[in-house]
Amino acid sequence: MAFSAWLTAHYEEKGPVRWLAFALELVAAVTLFLLMFLTCADVVGRYFFGNSVDGTTELTEIGIAILVFAEMPVITWRGGHVVVDILDKMWGSVALKVLGLLSAFLMSSAMYFLGVRIFELAERSLRRDEITELLEIPVGYIVQYIAVMSWATAALMITYGIYHQIIQNRD
């Protein structure tokens, strides 16, 4: 089937993680496209029709959060975060692997504990009925989303991320 061939060619991940990566990136891609479209519609509306899209700023803010945190698990498990590699030549490959595992552990822990606090903040915000100014969207939902994606990042990093590091280093 053409689509599954495309998916295999595009995603280095294995098994169900490949589908997960595709789903997350699809969310990010659609959001980004809508962000672009929204800004253009707002400007065109304001300039030519004297009427801008209500709540463009709010939707843009929510859009960035969706975009960034949909990608967070993917770039994290792929080891995509920016690293200073000045000393790489000095370290042996075993040492680099150990450092990689240490990083994975620290990153997962950080994302897990922050996720817990972010989720608590989201619940508090929902309890207090905090909404956006114009569209009156409950702010807490987007914060909950960030919390859930932080947990997803932690869980996938400590499992698939480490597996990915090990097979990558073996190649």
Binding site: T39, T60, E61, G63, I64, L114, R117
Partner: peptide
């Protein structure tokens, strides 16, 4: 730990929803 956790969490939540930072994804696009 709540004060430090909230400080860091708020930085994450607010920065991810900072309007002026929308230039980053859109100009890269």
């Amino acid at each position: 730990w709540n004060s430090s956790l909230s400080m860091a969490s708020k930085r994450i939540v607010d920065t991810a929803q900072e309007y002026s930072l929308s230039v980053i994804p859109l100009f890269i696009l």
